[in-house]
Design a protein around this nucleic acid. Structure first.
Length: 555
RNA sequence: AGCCUUAUAGUAUAGUGGUAGUACAACAGAUUUUGAUUCUGUCCGCCUAGGUUCGAAUCCUGGUAAGGCUACCA
Protein backbone atom coordinates (compact mmCIF):
# COMPACT_ATOMS: atom_id res chain seq x y z
CA UNK A 1 0.00 0.00 0.00
CA UNK A 2 1.30 3.39 -0.96
CA UNK A 3 -0.29 5.33 1.84
CA UNK A 4 1.21 5.12 5.24
CA UNK A 5 -1.57 6.72 7.22
CA UNK A 6 -4.01 4.66 9.21
CA UNK A 7 -7.28 3.49 7.73
CA UNK A 8 -10.46 5.29 8.57
CA UNK A 9 -13.46 3.27 9.64
CA UNK A 10 -14.89 3.05 6.13
CA UNK A 11 -11.63 1.82 4.62
CA UNK A 12 -11.40 -0.62 7.49
CA UNK A 13 -14.93 -1.86 6.72
CA UNK A 14 -14.28 -2.23 3.02
CA UNK A 15 -11.04 -4.11 3.55
CA UNK A 16 -12.79 -6.46 5.93
CA UNK A 17 -15.58 -7.02 3.43
CA UNK A 18 -13.15 -7.76 0.64
CA UNK A 19 -11.22 -10.09 2.89
CA UNK A 20 -14.37 -11.91 4.03
CA UNK A 21 -15.63 -12.02 0.47
CA UNK A 22 -18.86 -10.36 1.49
CA UNK A 23 -17.96 -7.69 -1.05
CA UNK A 24 -17.31 -9.37 -4.37
CA UNK A 25 -18.79 -6.79 -6.73
CA UNK A 26 -16.87 -3.58 -7.47
CA UNK A 27 -16.93 -0.75 -4.97
CA UNK A 28 -19.40 1.82 -6.26
CA UNK A 29 -20.06 5.05 -4.39
CA UNK A 30 -22.11 8.06 -5.25
CA UNK A 31 -22.22 11.73 -4.46
CA UNK A 32 -25.92 12.65 -4.21
CA UNK A 33 -26.50 16.40 -3.84
CA UNK A 34 -29.93 17.93 -4.00
CA UNK A 35 -29.68 20.69 -6.62
CA UNK A 36 -31.11 23.33 -4.35
CA UNK A 37 -28.01 25.29 -3.42
CA UNK A 38 -24.30 25.63 -3.81
CA UNK A 39 -21.77 23.12 -2.55
CA UNK A 40 -19.69 23.99 0.49
CA UNK A 41 -16.72 22.57 2.35
CA UNK A 42 -18.93 19.98 4.00
CA UNK A 43 -19.78 18.66 0.56
CA UNK A 44 -16.09 18.75 -0.31
CA UNK A 45 -15.50 16.35 2.55
CA UNK A 46 -18.17 14.03 1.19
CA UNK A 47 -16.86 14.33 -2.38
CA UNK A 48 -13.30 13.53 -1.34
CA UNK A 49 -14.59 10.62 0.72
CA UNK A 50 -16.80 9.10 -1.94
CA UNK A 51 -14.46 9.58 -4.87
CA UNK A 52 -11.40 8.81 -2.77
CA UNK A 53 -12.79 5.51 -1.52
CA UNK A 54 -13.74 4.38 -5.01
CA UNK A 55 -10.35 5.36 -6.39
CA UNK A 56 -8.55 3.57 -3.63
CA UNK A 57 -10.47 0.33 -4.17
CA UNK A 58 -10.58 0.49 -7.95
CA UNK A 59 -14.27 1.23 -8.11
CA UNK A 60 -16.36 4.02 -9.54
CA UNK A 61 -18.37 6.97 -8.28
CA UNK A 62 -21.62 8.27 -9.71
CA UNK A 63 -22.93 11.76 -9.49
CA UNK A 64 -26.61 11.64 -8.70
CA UNK A 65 -28.83 14.65 -8.34
CA UNK A 66 -31.36 13.84 -5.69
CA UNK A 67 -34.12 15.86 -7.26
CA UNK A 68 -37.32 14.62 -5.71
CA UNK A 69 -38.58 17.96 -4.48
CA UNK A 70 -39.38 20.19 -7.46
CA UNK A 71 -40.17 23.17 -5.25
CA UNK A 72 -36.59 23.93 -4.36
CA UNK A 73 -34.55 22.56 -7.21
CA UNK A 74 -33.16 24.33 -10.23
CA UNK A 75 -30.93 23.59 -13.20
CA UNK A 76 -28.72 26.53 -12.24
CA UNK A 77 -27.64 24.56 -9.19
CA UNK A 78 -27.05 21.41 -11.22
CA UNK A 79 -24.52 23.21 -13.37
CA UNK A 80 -22.80 24.91 -10.46
CA UNK A 81 -22.49 21.62 -8.62
CA UNK A 82 -20.90 19.91 -11.60
CA UNK A 83 -18.43 22.73 -12.01
CA UNK A 84 -17.48 22.57 -8.35
CA UNK A 85 -16.87 18.82 -8.36
CA UNK A 86 -14.68 19.06 -11.43
CA UNK A 87 -12.80 21.99 -10.02
CA UNK A 88 -12.03 19.87 -6.98
CA UNK A 89 -10.41 17.45 -9.38
CA UNK A 90 -12.92 14.62 -9.57
CA UNK A 91 -14.76 13.13 -12.50
CA UNK A 92 -17.87 11.02 -11.98
CA UNK A 93 -18.44 7.79 -13.80
CA UNK A 94 -22.14 8.23 -14.55
CA UNK A 95 -24.37 11.24 -14.18
CA UNK A 96 -27.78 10.30 -12.85
CA UNK A 97 -30.92 12.00 -11.64
CA UNK A 98 -33.32 10.49 -9.19
CA UNK A 99 -35.99 11.97 -11.42
CA UNK A 100 -34.86 9.55 -14.15
CA UNK A 101 -36.13 6.79 -11.89
CA UNK A 102 -39.60 8.23 -11.31
CA UNK A 103 -41.27 5.53 -13.43
CA UNK A 104 -39.36 2.73 -11.75
CA UNK A 105 -40.07 4.20 -8.36
CA UNK A 106 -43.76 4.41 -9.24
CA UNK A 107 -43.74 0.75 -10.19
CA UNK A 108 -42.03 -0.11 -6.93
CA UNK A 109 -44.76 1.70 -5.05
CA UNK A 110 -47.33 -0.43 -6.83
CA UNK A 111 -45.40 -3.55 -5.90
CA UNK A 112 -45.57 -2.49 -2.29
CA UNK A 113 -49.30 -1.87 -2.59
CA UNK A 114 -49.74 -5.32 -4.11
CA UNK A 115 -47.89 -6.87 -1.23
CA UNK A 116 -50.19 -5.02 1.17
CA UNK A 117 -47.27 -2.91 2.35
CA UNK A 118 -48.45 0.50 1.24
CA UNK A 119 -51.71 2.39 1.38
CA UNK A 120 -53.26 5.65 0.34
CA UNK A 121 -54.07 7.84 3.30
CA UNK A 122 -56.65 10.65 3.17
CA UNK A 123 -55.63 12.19 6.48
CA UNK A 124 -54.36 15.76 6.55
CA UNK A 125 -50.72 16.35 7.37
CA UNK A 126 -51.76 17.68 10.78
CA UNK A 127 -53.67 14.49 11.56
CA UNK A 128 -50.83 12.33 10.34
CA UNK A 129 -48.42 14.23 12.54
CA UNK A 130 -50.75 13.82 15.48
CA UNK A 131 -51.18 10.12 14.93
CA UNK A 132 -47.47 9.64 14.61
CA UNK A 133 -47.22 9.87 18.38
CA UNK A 134 -44.05 10.76 20.19
CA UNK A 135 -40.76 8.89 20.36
CA UNK A 136 -41.68 7.58 23.77
CA UNK A 137 -45.31 6.88 22.94
CA UNK A 138 -46.60 4.68 20.14
CA UNK A 139 -48.57 6.20 17.30
CA UNK A 140 -52.05 5.24 16.26
CA UNK A 141 -53.05 3.67 12.99
CA UNK A 142 -54.80 5.61 10.29
CA UNK A 143 -58.41 4.68 9.59
CA UNK A 144 -57.39 4.27 5.95
CA UNK A 145 -54.64 1.83 6.78
CA UNK A 146 -56.51 -1.25 5.78
CA UNK A 147 -57.77 -0.36 2.35
CA UNK A 148 -57.49 -3.22 -0.10
CA UNK A 149 -54.61 -3.31 -2.59
CA UNK A 150 -57.15 -2.82 -5.39
CA UNK A 151 -58.56 0.32 -3.86
CA UNK A 152 -55.08 1.60 -3.06
CA UNK A 153 -53.95 1.00 -6.59
CA UNK A 154 -56.94 2.84 -7.99
CA UNK A 155 -56.44 5.80 -5.66
CA UNK A 156 -52.70 5.92 -6.26
CA UNK A 157 -53.32 5.87 -9.99
CA UNK A 158 -55.76 8.74 -9.52
CA UNK A 159 -53.17 10.63 -7.48
CA UNK A 160 -50.78 10.24 -10.35
CA UNK A 161 -53.38 11.41 -12.83
CA UNK A 162 -53.84 14.62 -10.96
CA UNK A 163 -57.29 13.97 -9.65
CA UNK A 164 -56.42 15.31 -6.21
CA UNK A 165 -55.02 18.52 -4.88
CA UNK A 166 -51.76 18.99 -3.03
CA UNK A 167 -51.97 17.31 0.34
CA UNK A 168 -55.31 15.69 -0.27
CA UNK A 169 -53.86 12.19 -0.26
CA UNK A 170 -50.49 10.55 0.32
CA UNK A 171 -49.11 7.08 -0.14
CA UNK A 172 -47.72 5.56 3.02
CA UNK A 173 -45.65 2.45 3.69
CA UNK A 174 -47.41 0.11 6.07
CA UNK A 175 -44.78 -0.79 8.63
CA UNK A 176 -45.27 -0.29 12.36
CA UNK A 177 -47.00 2.58 14.12
CA UNK A 178 -45.50 1.48 17.44
CA UNK A 179 -41.87 1.39 16.33
CA UNK A 180 -39.49 3.27 18.60
CA UNK A 181 -37.99 4.60 15.37
CA UNK A 182 -40.29 7.37 14.18
CA UNK A 183 -39.23 6.80 10.61
CA UNK A 184 -40.77 3.33 10.66
CA UNK A 185 -44.22 4.59 11.72
CA UNK A 186 -45.85 4.28 8.32
CA UNK A 187 -43.67 6.86 6.59
CA UNK A 188 -45.08 8.86 3.73
CA UNK A 189 -43.51 7.69 0.50
CA UNK A 190 -45.37 9.73 -2.13
CA UNK A 191 -46.96 13.13 -1.95
CA UNK A 192 -48.89 15.24 -4.40
CA UNK A 193 -47.20 18.38 -5.66
CA UNK A 194 -48.70 20.13 -8.63
CA UNK A 195 -45.38 21.76 -9.27
CA UNK A 196 -43.32 21.53 -12.45
CA UNK A 197 -40.00 19.79 -12.03
CA UNK A 198 -36.80 21.26 -13.46
CA UNK A 199 -36.31 18.13 -15.56
CA UNK A 200 -39.58 16.23 -15.83
CA UNK A 201 -41.59 19.44 -16.20
CA UNK A 202 -45.29 18.60 -15.86
CA UNK A 203 -45.02 14.89 -16.38
CA UNK A 204 -45.56 14.11 -12.70
CA UNK A 205 -47.67 15.60 -9.98
CA UNK A 206 -46.70 13.00 -7.41
CA UNK A 207 -43.16 12.86 -6.15
CA UNK A 208 -41.41 10.22 -4.05
CA UNK A 209 -40.01 11.17 -0.67
CA UNK A 210 -36.29 10.94 0.03
CA UNK A 211 -36.68 7.68 1.92
CA UNK A 212 -38.54 6.04 -0.90
CA UNK A 213 -36.07 7.25 -3.51
CA UNK A 214 -32.60 7.15 -2.12
CA UNK A 215 -32.07 3.51 -1.30
CA UNK A 216 -33.78 2.28 -4.44
CA UNK A 217 -31.75 4.67 -6.57
CA UNK A 218 -28.62 3.34 -4.92
CA UNK A 219 -29.76 -0.19 -5.69
CA UNK A 220 -30.57 0.63 -9.30
CA UNK A 221 -27.03 1.94 -9.71
CA UNK A 222 -25.47 -0.97 -7.81
CA UNK A 223 -24.04 1.40 -5.24
CA UNK A 224 -22.12 -0.80 -2.84
CA UNK A 225 -21.45 1.83 -0.19
CA UNK A 226 -23.95 4.62 0.24
CA UNK A 227 -22.23 7.13 2.46
CA UNK A 228 -24.15 9.90 4.15
CA UNK A 229 -24.00 12.04 7.25
CA UNK A 230 -24.95 10.98 10.74
CA UNK A 231 -28.42 12.47 10.83
CA UNK A 232 -29.54 9.80 8.37
CA UNK A 233 -28.60 7.06 10.74
CA UNK A 234 -32.18 6.60 11.91
CA UNK A 235 -33.25 6.27 8.30
CA UNK A 236 -31.11 3.20 7.78
CA UNK A 237 -33.70 0.62 8.93
CA UNK A 238 -36.14 2.14 6.46
CA UNK A 239 -33.51 2.22 3.73
CA UNK A 240 -32.96 -1.48 4.30
CA UNK A 241 -36.68 -2.24 4.58
CA UNK A 242 -37.48 -0.93 1.10
CA UNK A 243 -34.54 -2.70 -0.48
CA UNK A 244 -35.54 -5.93 1.17
CA UNK A 245 -39.27 -5.72 0.44
CA UNK A 246 -38.57 -4.84 -3.17
CA UNK A 247 -35.85 -7.45 -3.45
CA UNK A 248 -33.25 -5.07 -4.84
CA UNK A 249 -29.46 -5.00 -4.95
CA UNK A 250 -28.43 -4.75 -1.30
CA UNK A 251 -26.77 -1.35 -1.18
CA UNK A 252 -25.62 -0.52 2.32
CA UNK A 253 -25.76 2.83 4.03
CA UNK A 254 -22.88 4.11 6.17
CA UNK A 255 -22.83 7.33 8.10
CA UNK A 256 -20.06 9.72 9.06
CA UNK A 257 -19.96 12.94 11.07
CA UNK A 258 -20.42 16.09 9.05
CA UNK A 259 -17.76 18.77 8.93
CA UNK A 260 -17.95 21.76 11.23
CA UNK A 261 -15.39 24.52 11.03
CA UNK A 262 -14.64 27.14 13.66
CA UNK A 263 -15.93 30.64 12.87
CA UNK A 264 -17.79 29.20 9.91
CA UNK A 265 -21.34 28.22 9.12
CA UNK A 266 -21.94 25.12 7.07
CA UNK A 267 -25.68 24.92 6.71
CA UNK A 268 -27.13 25.53 3.26
CA UNK A 269 -30.10 27.24 4.79
CA UNK A 270 -28.05 29.74 6.76
CA UNK A 271 -25.67 30.35 3.89
CA UNK A 272 -28.69 31.13 1.77
CA UNK A 273 -29.81 33.56 4.44
CA UNK A 274 -26.46 35.37 4.25
CA UNK A 275 -26.89 35.72 0.52
CA UNK A 276 -30.51 36.86 0.76
CA UNK A 277 -29.83 39.37 3.52
CA UNK A 278 -26.86 40.60 1.49
CA UNK A 279 -24.43 40.04 4.31
CA UNK A 280 -22.21 38.75 1.54
CA UNK A 281 -22.11 39.60 -2.13
CA UNK A 282 -23.32 36.20 -3.28
CA UNK A 283 -22.71 32.48 -3.12
CA UNK A 284 -19.19 33.03 -4.39
CA UNK A 285 -18.29 35.81 -2.00
CA UNK A 286 -14.68 35.01 -1.08
CA UNK A 287 -15.64 34.86 2.58
CA UNK A 288 -18.18 32.12 2.01
CA UNK A 289 -17.32 28.50 2.82
CA UNK A 290 -18.87 27.47 -0.48
CA UNK A 291 -16.67 25.79 -3.04
CA UNK A 292 -17.27 28.71 -5.37
CA UNK A 293 -16.39 31.13 -2.58
CA UNK A 294 -13.12 29.52 -1.62
CA UNK A 295 -12.27 29.10 -5.29
CA UNK A 296 -12.74 32.82 -5.87
CA UNK A 297 -10.82 33.50 -2.69
CA UNK A 298 -7.88 31.71 -4.26
CA UNK A 299 -7.74 28.37 -2.51
CA UNK A 300 -6.42 25.62 -4.73
CA UNK A 301 -8.25 22.32 -5.31
CA UNK A 302 -5.19 20.55 -4.02
CA UNK A 303 -5.27 22.42 -0.72
CA UNK A 304 -8.92 21.47 -0.20
CA UNK A 305 -8.24 17.82 -0.94
CA UNK A 306 -5.32 17.94 1.45
CA UNK A 307 -7.54 19.47 4.09
CA UNK A 308 -10.17 16.76 3.65
CA UNK A 309 -7.48 14.14 3.97
CA UNK A 310 -6.15 15.70 7.15
CA UNK A 311 -9.47 16.07 8.96
CA UNK A 312 -10.14 12.37 8.58
CA UNK A 313 -13.52 10.79 8.87
CA UNK A 314 -15.20 9.37 11.92
CA UNK A 315 -18.57 9.09 13.59
CA UNK A 316 -18.15 11.54 16.41
CA UNK A 317 -19.26 15.14 16.36
CA UNK A 318 -16.38 17.46 15.61
CA UNK A 319 -15.41 21.03 14.98
CA UNK A 320 -12.26 21.54 12.98
CA UNK A 321 -10.03 24.50 13.72
CA UNK A 322 -10.12 26.77 10.67
CA UNK A 323 -6.36 27.13 11.20
CA UNK A 324 -5.99 23.69 9.71
CA UNK A 325 -7.60 24.82 6.47
CA UNK A 326 -5.33 27.84 6.39
CA UNK A 327 -2.25 25.78 7.11
CA UNK A 328 -3.08 23.59 4.09
CA UNK A 329 -3.12 26.49 1.67
CA UNK A 330 -0.10 28.15 3.28
CA UNK A 331 1.89 24.98 2.98
CA UNK A 332 1.18 24.72 -0.72
CA UNK A 333 1.61 28.39 -1.54
CA UNK A 334 4.80 28.73 0.49
CA UNK A 335 6.36 26.24 -1.87
CA UNK A 336 4.85 27.54 -5.08
CA UNK A 337 3.91 31.20 -4.87
CA UNK A 338 6.12 33.86 -6.41
CA UNK A 339 7.21 36.55 -3.96
CA UNK A 340 6.40 40.11 -4.90
CA UNK A 341 6.10 43.42 -3.11
CA UNK A 342 2.96 45.42 -2.55
CA UNK A 343 2.42 48.27 -0.15
CA UNK A 344 -1.12 48.30 1.15
CA UNK A 345 -0.97 51.44 3.27
CA UNK A 346 1.74 53.54 1.67
CA UNK A 347 3.84 56.28 3.14
CA UNK A 348 6.34 58.04 0.95
CA UNK A 349 10.05 58.18 1.59
CA UNK A 350 12.45 60.53 -0.07
CA UNK A 351 16.01 59.28 -0.01
CA UNK A 352 17.87 62.53 0.39
CA UNK A 353 21.30 61.30 -0.58
CA UNK A 354 20.11 59.49 -3.70
CA UNK A 355 20.63 61.23 -7.04
CA UNK A 356 17.54 62.99 -8.36
CA UNK A 357 17.19 61.53 -11.80
CA UNK A 358 18.79 58.20 -11.09
CA UNK A 359 16.97 54.91 -11.42
CA UNK A 360 18.60 51.55 -11.09
CA UNK A 361 17.56 47.98 -11.67
CA UNK A 362 17.75 45.53 -8.80
CA UNK A 363 17.37 41.81 -8.96
CA UNK A 364 14.92 40.09 -6.63
CA UNK A 365 14.59 36.40 -5.94
CA UNK A 366 11.19 35.03 -6.99
CA UNK A 367 10.96 32.28 -4.43
CA UNK A 368 13.65 31.26 -1.98
CA UNK A 369 11.85 27.92 -1.53
CA UNK A 370 12.20 27.13 -5.21
CA UNK A 371 15.69 27.43 -6.69
CA UNK A 372 14.28 27.12 -10.21
CA UNK A 373 11.95 30.08 -9.85
CA UNK A 374 14.56 32.60 -11.00
CA UNK A 375 14.48 36.28 -10.30
CA UNK A 376 12.88 39.46 -11.53
CA UNK A 377 13.86 43.07 -11.92
CA UNK A 378 12.81 45.91 -9.65
CA UNK A 379 13.42 49.57 -10.22
CA UNK A 380 14.77 51.71 -7.43
CA UNK A 381 14.99 55.46 -7.21
CA UNK A 382 14.90 58.49 -4.93
CA UNK A 383 11.21 58.24 -4.11
CA UNK A 384 9.75 55.05 -2.72
CA UNK A 385 6.86 53.93 -0.58
CA UNK A 386 6.89 51.69 2.45
CA UNK A 387 4.13 50.38 4.67
CA UNK A 388 2.95 52.99 7.14
CA UNK A 389 3.06 50.45 9.96
CA UNK A 390 6.73 49.78 9.24
CA UNK A 391 7.71 53.12 10.71
CA UNK A 392 7.28 54.27 14.29
CA UNK A 393 8.44 57.66 15.43
CA UNK A 394 8.41 56.41 18.99
CA UNK A 395 9.08 52.70 18.67
CA UNK A 396 7.58 50.30 21.17
CA UNK A 397 9.92 47.73 22.58
CA UNK A 398 11.03 44.93 20.29
CA UNK A 399 10.09 47.03 17.28
CA UNK A 400 12.82 46.44 14.78
CA UNK A 401 11.56 48.17 11.70
CA UNK A 402 12.28 51.77 10.72
CA UNK A 403 12.42 54.36 13.47
CA UNK A 404 14.62 57.28 14.43
CA UNK A 405 16.82 54.82 16.26
CA UNK A 406 16.70 51.73 14.05
CA UNK A 407 17.90 51.06 10.53
CA UNK A 408 16.13 48.71 8.18
CA UNK A 409 16.95 47.00 4.96
CA UNK A 410 14.66 47.50 2.03
CA UNK A 411 14.16 43.97 0.75
CA UNK A 412 16.52 43.23 -2.15
CA UNK A 413 17.82 46.80 -1.99
CA UNK A 414 19.64 49.07 0.44
CA UNK A 415 19.83 49.80 4.13
CA UNK A 416 17.98 52.92 5.11
CA UNK A 417 18.44 55.40 7.92
CA UNK A 418 15.78 57.76 9.19
CA UNK A 419 16.47 61.46 8.97
CA UNK A 420 13.28 63.40 9.59
CA UNK A 421 9.59 63.48 8.78
CA UNK A 422 6.98 65.89 7.57
CA UNK A 423 3.62 66.14 9.31
CA UNK A 424 0.29 67.72 8.52
CA UNK A 425 -1.66 70.05 10.83
CA UNK A 426 -3.13 67.12 12.74
CA UNK A 427 0.30 65.73 13.38
CA UNK A 428 -0.04 62.82 10.99
CA UNK A 429 3.12 61.85 9.26
CA UNK A 430 2.96 62.75 5.59
CA UNK A 431 6.39 61.86 4.36
CA UNK A 432 9.69 60.51 5.59
CA UNK A 433 13.16 61.65 4.67
CA UNK A 434 15.87 59.06 4.90
CA UNK A 435 19.38 58.41 3.76
CA UNK A 436 20.65 55.18 2.27
CA UNK A 437 23.98 53.42 2.43
CA UNK A 438 25.24 53.10 -1.15
CA UNK A 439 27.56 50.26 -0.18
CA UNK A 440 24.79 48.17 1.36
CA UNK A 441 23.26 46.93 -1.86
CA UNK A 442 21.65 43.55 -1.51
CA UNK A 443 23.97 40.76 -2.44
CA UNK A 444 27.04 42.97 -2.48
CA UNK A 445 26.86 44.59 0.90
CA UNK A 446 30.20 45.84 2.17
CA UNK A 447 28.79 48.27 4.71
CA UNK A 448 29.21 45.91 7.61
CA UNK A 449 25.94 47.15 9.06
CA UNK A 450 23.71 44.54 10.63
CA UNK A 451 20.02 45.33 10.66
CA UNK A 452 17.29 43.38 12.31
CA UNK A 453 14.42 44.49 10.12
CA UNK A 454 13.80 43.90 6.46
CA UNK A 455 10.79 45.59 4.94
CA UNK A 456 9.05 45.61 1.60
CA UNK A 457 8.70 48.70 -0.57
CA UNK A 458 7.77 49.90 -4.05
CA UNK A 459 9.38 52.45 -6.35
CA UNK A 460 7.20 55.52 -6.81
CA UNK A 461 8.29 55.87 -10.42
CA UNK A 462 7.03 52.49 -11.55
CA UNK A 463 4.51 51.30 -8.96
CA UNK A 464 0.98 50.54 -10.07
CA UNK A 465 -2.18 51.24 -8.19
CA UNK A 466 -4.45 48.35 -7.27
CA UNK A 467 -7.46 47.53 -5.19
CA UNK A 468 -6.78 44.93 -2.55
CA UNK A 469 -9.47 43.12 -0.61
CA UNK A 470 -8.61 41.71 2.76
CA UNK A 471 -10.85 39.05 4.22
CA UNK A 472 -11.31 37.90 7.74
CA UNK A 473 -13.59 35.31 9.27
CA UNK A 474 -17.28 35.95 8.70
CA UNK A 475 -18.29 35.32 12.30
CA UNK A 476 -17.14 36.53 15.67
CA UNK A 477 -17.98 33.37 17.58
CA UNK A 478 -16.12 30.12 17.38
CA UNK A 479 -19.17 28.00 16.78
CA UNK A 480 -21.79 30.09 14.95
CA UNK A 481 -24.16 27.17 14.42
CA UNK A 482 -24.31 26.76 18.19
CA UNK A 483 -25.07 30.38 18.85
CA UNK A 484 -28.52 31.42 19.93
CA UNK A 485 -28.01 34.90 18.58
CA UNK A 486 -29.16 35.95 15.15
CA UNK A 487 -26.75 35.83 12.27
CA UNK A 488 -26.58 39.61 12.17
CA UNK A 489 -25.48 39.72 15.79
CA UNK A 490 -22.57 37.35 15.35
CA UNK A 491 -21.41 38.60 11.96
CA UNK A 492 -17.91 40.05 11.95
CA UNK A 493 -18.30 43.68 10.84
CA UNK A 494 -14.69 43.71 9.68
CA UNK A 495 -14.73 40.58 7.58
CA UNK A 496 -14.05 42.61 4.46
CA UNK A 497 -11.60 45.45 4.19
CA UNK A 498 -11.23 47.10 0.82
CA UNK A 499 -8.05 49.00 0.10
CA UNK A 500 -8.42 51.07 -3.01
CA UNK A 501 -5.00 52.65 -3.28
CA UNK A 502 -2.51 49.94 -2.68
CA UNK A 503 0.75 50.25 -4.61
CA UNK A 504 2.13 47.18 -6.26
CA UNK A 505 5.37 46.48 -8.03
CA UNK A 506 5.24 46.89 -11.79
CA UNK A 507 5.80 43.21 -12.59
CA UNK A 508 2.26 42.57 -11.35
CA UNK A 509 0.78 44.25 -14.41
CA UNK A 510 0.87 40.90 -16.20
CA UNK A 511 -0.69 38.84 -13.42
CA UNK A 512 -2.87 36.03 -14.79
CA UNK A 513 -6.15 34.88 -13.23
CA UNK A 514 -4.66 31.57 -12.15
CA UNK A 515 -1.57 33.13 -10.53
CA UNK A 516 -1.14 33.03 -6.80
CA UNK A 517 1.41 35.37 -5.30
CA UNK A 518 2.94 36.10 -1.99
CA UNK A 519 2.92 39.79 -1.20
CA UNK A 520 5.95 39.67 1.01
CA UNK A 521 5.09 39.95 4.69
CA UNK A 522 1.42 40.48 3.84
CA UNK A 523 0.04 37.15 2.76
CA UNK A 524 -0.96 35.25 -0.33
CA UNK A 525 -3.03 36.94 -3.01
CA UNK A 526 -4.69 36.28 -6.32
CA UNK A 527 -6.64 38.27 -8.85
CA UNK A 528 -10.33 38.63 -8.17
CA UNK A 529 -12.71 37.76 -10.97
CA UNK A 530 -13.74 41.43 -11.12
CA UNK A 531 -10.19 42.51 -11.92
CA UNK A 532 -9.60 44.32 -15.20
CA UNK A 533 -6.54 45.73 -16.90
CA UNK A 534 -7.59 49.23 -15.88
CA UNK A 535 -8.57 48.32 -12.37
CA UNK A 536 -6.51 45.52 -10.89
CA UNK A 537 -8.22 43.83 -7.94
CA UNK A 538 -6.48 41.38 -5.62
CA UNK A 539 -8.00 39.08 -3.04
CA UNK A 540 -6.06 38.05 -0.01
CA UNK A 541 -6.27 34.27 0.14
CA UNK A 542 -4.73 33.99 3.57
CA UNK A 543 -2.33 35.97 5.73
CA UNK A 544 1.14 34.84 6.61
CA UNK A 545 1.56 33.62 10.14
CA UNK A 546 2.25 36.69 12.16
CA UNK A 547 3.75 36.41 15.61
CA UNK A 548 4.46 40.12 15.68
CA UNK A 549 0.77 41.06 15.51
CA UNK A 550 0.21 38.74 18.43
CA UNK A 551 3.01 40.46 20.29
CA UNK A 552 1.45 43.88 19.70
CA UNK A 553 -1.97 42.61 20.60
CA UNK A 554 -0.77 41.23 23.90
CA UNK A 555 0.35 44.74 24.92
C1' A B 1 -39.31 10.53 28.03
C1' G B 2 -38.20 6.31 24.34
C1' C B 3 -34.88 4.61 20.64
C1' C B 4 -30.16 5.16 18.09
C1' U B 5 -25.03 6.94 18.15
C1' U B 6 -20.54 8.83 20.18
C1' A B 7 -16.69 9.66 24.14
C1' U B 8 -8.23 9.52 23.47
C1' A B 9 -4.12 16.58 24.49
C1' G B 10 -6.98 23.21 23.03
C1' U B 11 -8.98 21.05 18.01
C1' A B 12 -9.00 16.79 15.00
C1' U B 13 -7.33 11.82 14.27
C1' A B 14 -4.47 6.80 15.05
C1' G B 15 -3.90 3.03 18.48
C1' U B 16 -8.31 -3.38 17.45
C1' G B 17 -5.41 -7.04 25.28
C1' G B 18 1.33 -5.60 25.90
C1' U B 19 5.97 1.51 25.89
C1' A B 20 -0.55 6.32 24.11
C1' G B 21 1.37 8.31 18.55
C1' U B 22 0.55 12.10 14.41
C1' A B 23 -1.26 16.83 12.47
C1' C B 24 -2.97 21.75 13.46
C1' A B 25 -2.83 25.27 17.53
C1' A B 26 -0.03 27.23 21.75
C1' C B 27 4.76 28.32 24.18
C1' A B 28 10.30 28.75 24.20
C1' G B 29 14.85 28.84 21.52
C1' A B 30 18.11 28.59 16.92
C1' U B 31 18.53 30.08 11.83
C1' U B 32 16.68 33.81 8.51
C1' U B 33 17.67 40.06 3.52
C1' U B 34 9.77 38.05 4.66
C1' G B 35 8.58 39.06 12.80
C1' A B 36 7.34 34.16 6.89
C1' U B 37 9.73 29.51 5.91
C1' U B 38 12.99 25.85 8.19
C1' C B 39 14.98 23.42 12.58
C1' U B 40 15.01 22.10 17.88
C1' G B 41 12.57 21.74 22.27
C1' U B 42 8.27 22.41 25.69
C1' C B 43 3.20 22.13 27.16
C1' C B 44 -1.16 19.18 27.02
C1' G B 45 -4.82 13.43 26.75
C1' C B 46 -7.53 7.73 27.34
C1' C B 47 -15.40 10.89 30.52
C1' U B 48 -16.41 8.20 35.29
C1' A B 49 -17.07 3.94 38.80
C1' G B 50 -16.68 -1.05 39.11
C1' G B 51 -15.46 -5.93 36.89
C1' U B 52 -12.56 -9.71 33.72
C1' U B 53 -7.12 -10.28 33.02
C1' C B 54 -0.33 -11.30 34.73
C1' G B 55 -1.60 -6.89 31.93
C1' A B 56 -7.36 -2.68 29.73
C1' A B 57 -7.72 3.40 25.81
C1' U B 58 -9.08 -1.46 23.90
C1' C B 59 -13.36 -6.65 26.62
C1' C B 60 -17.95 -6.61 30.25
C1' U B 61 -21.51 -3.85 33.57
C1' G B 62 -23.41 0.63 35.67
C1' G B 63 -23.24 5.87 35.52
C1' U B 64 -22.26 10.70 33.20
C1' A B 65 -21.93 13.94 29.08
C1' A B 66 -22.65 15.23 23.97
C1' G B 67 -25.24 14.51 19.31
C1' G B 68 -29.39 12.53 16.31
C1' C B 69 -34.78 11.21 15.58
C1' U B 70 -40.89 13.21 16.69
C1' A B 71 -41.11 17.62 8.00
C1' C B 72 -46.33 15.75 2.63
C1' C B 73 -37.36 18.67 3.17
C1' A B 74 -33.03 16.13 1.72
Amino acid sequence: MSDTHALNFLEETIEQQIKNETQTTPIVTRFPPEPNGYLHLGHAKSICLNFGLAQKYKGTTNLRFDDTNPETEETEYVNAIKEDIQWLGFQWHNEHYTSNYFSQLYQMAIQLIDKGLAYVDDLTSEDIAKQKGEPSKPGTESPYRNRTPEENKRLFEEMKQGKYTNGQKVLRAKIDMTSPNMHMRDPIIYRIKHVPHHRTKNEWCIYPMYDFAHGQSDAIEYISHSICTLEFEVHRPLYNWFIQQLNLYPSQQYEFARLNLTYTLMSKRKLLQLVQEQSVSGWDDPRMPTISGIRRRGYTPNSIRKFCEKIGVARRENIIDVNLLESCIREELNASAKRVMAVLDPIEIEITNYENAKSEILLAENNPEDPNSGSRELTFSKHIFIEREDFMEEPIKKFFRLSPTTLVRLKSAYILQYERCEKDEQGNIKKLYCTYFPNSKSGQDTSGIAVKGVIHWVDKATALCAEVRLYDRLFLVENPSDSEKTLAEILNPNSLQIIRNALIESSLATTKPEDRLQFMRKGYFCLDKSSTEKQIVFNRIVTLKDTWQKEIFSH
